[in-house]
């Protein structure tokens, strides 16, 4: 790890002010991605702005009307075990419970995961399929606009995620084919239906990160049943190939995970 200056902040405002003054500073949330990256010297921020002392203000889960608000510093463990999330969006609680291992879930945060936009991370698929809104200290960004590429988001330098707001769907499910070694998604498919609107988001597969599967959405909008997916398959073009799986295999997995997710969403 390269040397950095360490700052402790107890509010979002202080964090944003410091970030404005330190160009190469980074926010430290759970550190489950940032610290390993710094150890490998793939990141060398001049300063770390530690959001953990601001957890009380930046963490928490609230159901307001037909939306679930989740603070950026909310740990995966707390989302997985929240009665409110389990009731309103069980698929989201289940997704959180599938991230990494118990120790990672105790520390990692939803804000950190979404800001990081790892192409194999789980939360980005939930944000996209549930049509979530990412709130920052400056503005609100829809998930469709937020995830812009591999590890890239619409966040400007120094912009802080404060919370993520998920509309409650009528039906939803997440199916993940985990890489057995890393437990990240080799392919994960999040399917959500709200009114007539059906959204299908795929993580782990795309070479520019999470994406919506248009063909699957169209078929499922006509009829939200696994039978509607007969003959529908994903193209291998633009998918990742690596030692774990080639693009054709990932394309196949998208079809399998999507079907399982639809069945699960329908209670089958």
């Amino acid at each position: 790890m390269y040397q950095f200056t360490y700052h402790r902040v107890d509010s979002a405002r202080k964090a944003a002010n410091l970030a404005e003054k330190n160009e190469d500073a980074k926010f430290l949330a759970g550190g489950m991605t940032l610290l390993p990256t710094m150890k490998q010297r793939l990141a060398s921020p001049s300063a770390l702005i530690d959001l953990n002392p601001a957890s009380e203000k930046l963490a928490g889960i609230e159901v307001k009307g037909r939306n679930v608000h989740i603070g950026a510093m909310t740990r995966h463990y707390d989302v997985a075990n929240s009665k409110d999330v389990q009731e309103a969006i069980p698929a989201l609680a289940e997704l959180a419970g599938m991230i990494g291992d118990p120790a990672v879930r105790h520390r990692g945060t939803i804000g950190g995961s979404v800001a990081n936009n790892d192409p194999a991370a789980d939360y980005p698929s939930a944000c996209l399929a549930l049509n979530a809104t990412i709130h920052t200290n400056k503005r609100k960004i829809s998930a469709d606009e937020f995830f812009t590429g591999l590890f890239e988001t619409a966040l400007e330098p120094g912009e802080l995620i404060t919370k993520i707001v998920f509309p409650v769907p009528s039906k939803a499910a997440y199916m993940k084919f985990p890489n057995p070694a890393s437990r990240y998604a080799m392919v994960g498919v999040f399917v959500a239906k709200k009114g007539k609107d059906v959204r299908v988001a795929v993580t782990g597969a795309g070479s520019s990160g999470v994406f919506r599967a248009g063909k699957f959405e169209a078929a499922l909008t006509a009829k939200f049943h696994v039978k509607a997916l007969e003959g529908v398959s994903a193209s291998a073009e633009g998918l990742n190939s690596d030692i774990h799986a080639d693009a054709a295999y990932r394309a196949h997995l998208i079809g399998v995970m999507a079907r399982r997710a639809v069945n699960k969403a329908n209670g089958k």
Binding site: R8, L28, G31, A103, V104
Partner: peptide, 23 residues
């Protein structure tokens, strides 16, 4: 997981937490 300890009652990987953050 060789480095797991409990912090405020919860298991954490102590190789992936800064000491300063645990004031």
């Amino acid at each position: 997981g060789c480095c797991v300890v409990h912090v405020d009652g919860k298991a954490l990987k102590s190789c992936t937490v800064l000491a300063l953050t645990l004031e």
